[in-house]
């Protein structure tokens, strides 16, 4: 169970244009939750993910994992329990290393790295089997440099690497947004497959409302650094894009001084669909 309590993060505090990316956000992620996180640009989705991953620290609030306070733990030390996939398909793998070397790096996530061989021969069978599950034919190309792979192949490999060792929480940061529609659909399929078959606790940021509704057991919507919607179970199951848009507009009307229907609102809607 991952718990965030009163997380606040302001960029450029005291500067000319301070931006409150997270305003007193509290959230409990239960074991086995598959949460989809949506919101317009600047809503705080990525900031929330980065605070969880330890890329930067919150100004206030605490993060606990199974009761242990991890708020001050640096990014590399959190890797032991987090699997991460980034938006840029080139960010998750090392281009100059081979497929098996990349997998070997991932097989030691959060572990001590010593002077024994980087790729142990006994690991190769395990890697081959894991790659076989992707159905991309990569299991026959263990020695191939990752730079030879396409963006979609690299993102599939990153998914595999993030889950090679079972993570306590899997963090997906718009991991299909930079792919072409067909490839994005395949990666999403792979995501759903990995998460459900292995029952992984997952937090997935997306720009796509359909994705957010179709996948997962819980949907969270953020706006201006706050969680404005948190639905799960049957309620989430029955949700439609239209309902979501309506709720988004009405919830915004209450806290938005500009009111709904402004130019700002229009661009946000366009981004959300």
């Amino acid at each position: 169970m991952l718990t965030l309590t009163g997380i606040t993060k302001t960029f450029n505090p005291g500067g000319a244009d301070p931006v409150t990316a997270l305003a007193d956000v509290s959230l409990t992620i239960e074991k086995g939750d598959f949460i989809t996180l949506i919101g317009s640009n600047g809503a705080g989705k990525s900031t929330l993910l980065n605070c969880l991953a330890g890329v930067f620290f919150p100004d206030a609030g605490t993060i606990t994992l199974d009761g242990k306070d991890i708020t001050a733990l640096p990014e590399h030390a959190r890797a032991a329990f987090l699997g991460r996939v980034f938006q840029d398909p080139l960010s998750g793998t090392c281009a100059s290393l081979s497929i098996e070397q990349n997998l070997a790096l991932a097989a030691l996530r959060g572990k001590r790295r010593g002077l024994s061989r980087g790729v142990a021969p006994r690991d190769r069978d395990r890697f081959r089997q894991a790659l076989h599950s992707l159905s991309l034919g990569l299991e026959d190309r263990l020695d191939a440099r990752v730079r030879l792979l396409s963006g979609g192949q690299r993102q599939a490999l990153t998914m595999l690497m993030a889950t090679l060792l079972r993570p306590e929480v899997l963090l997906l940061d718009e991991h299909t947004a930079a792919l072409d529609p067909k490839t994005a659909a395949r990666i999403l399929e792979l995501t759903a497959h990995l998460v459900t078959t292995r029952n992984l606790t997952t937090l997935m940021v997306t720009h796509n409302m359909n994705q957010a509704i179709r996948l997962g057991n819980r949907l969270i919507m953020m706006h201006r650094g706050r969680i404005i919607l948190d639905v799960s179970g049957q309620e989430k199951h029955n949700l439609t894009v239209e309902q979501l848009l309506t709720r988004f507009a009405s919830l915004r009307a209450t806290d938005d001084p500009d009111g709904p229907g402004g130019a700002d609102d229009m661009t946000d809607k366009m981004l959300l669909v």
Partner: peptide, 28 residues
Amino acid sequence: WFLSTQFGQATLATGDNPRMITALGVNT
């Protein structure tokens, strides 16, 4: 030999993709 070890491979990855290797638990 050094660059083929676990630590050496992490060193190669540090120059190639520091973000990725940090996410995999290496203190760059």
